[in-house]
Each structure stands twice: as structure tokens, then as C-alpha cells.
Amino acid sequence: MRRSGRDPGLQPERTRLAWRRTTLACTVAAVLAARAALRGGSPLAGALLCALCLSVWLAFLAFAHRRIRALSASAPRLLAPRLALAATACTVALALCAAALVL
């Protein structure tokens, strides 16, 4: 394995951009969630769900930021399964919030 210089395939950069795209997708879902929560029936439940979605979004942002920083190393390490699990959990949490809002 090579240790120095630039990877001609720009793999770390592409992976970083993939994380950014995923963060963007998460932002869109979170914005739709906030809109649904604030337009719903009861204001208290709406505010709670909105806060929940916001914290899920912030958590995803933090995970993505951590990984993006780790990817600037010259030979990045394997994505930690815990981080992958956390990102998956954020997605599932948004889906559960959505189900709560729809029902």
C-alpha cells in the first residue's frame, strides 16, 4: 500500500463528498420533518418532535464531520462500524419520527 503523496483516484475526496451529499439528503429529510411537526395538530407534540428531528440532524452532522476530518489523513482508516451504525440509527430515527407524525 502506498503511504505518501496523492491518491490518483482521489478516493478520500470522493468519499468525503459522498458524506457531504448524504448530509444534504439528511438535511432535506429533517426540514420536511420540521415542517410536518410544526403544521401538525397539537403544538406541544409538534415542538417535541421538531426538537427531536433537529437533534437527530445535528447528530448526523457531527458524525459526518468527524468522518470527513478523519478522511483527510494520508491513508484513511476503515470507517468505524460504530459510526456507520450511528448514521443508520439517525436515518431510522427520522423514519420513526415521520411515522409518528403521519399517524
Binding site: 468519499t15 439528503a25 429529510a29 470507517l79 456507520a84 436515518t91 427520522l94 415521520a98
Partner: peptide, 30 residues
């Protein structure tokens, strides 16, 4: 490590698909 990064990007692509489906669920409702 490049193979692992490719695998990671595939994971992220599926996660985006999942987020898009969740977004679609919200969109249908709203």
C-alpha cells in the same frame, strides 16, 4: 484502503436512498 473507501461510498449511497424514501414519505403526507 481504497477498496474500503469504495465500500463506504456504496454504504452512503444506500443511506441516501433510505433518506430519500423517508423524505418521500413526508412529501406524500404533506
Amino acid at each position: 484502503y481504497r477498496f474500503s473507501l469504495a465500500n463506504e461510498r456504496t454504504f452512503l449511497a444506500w443511506l441516501r436512498t433510505a433518506l430519500a424514501l423517508v423524505g418521500g414519505g413526508f412529501a406524500v403526507d404533506q
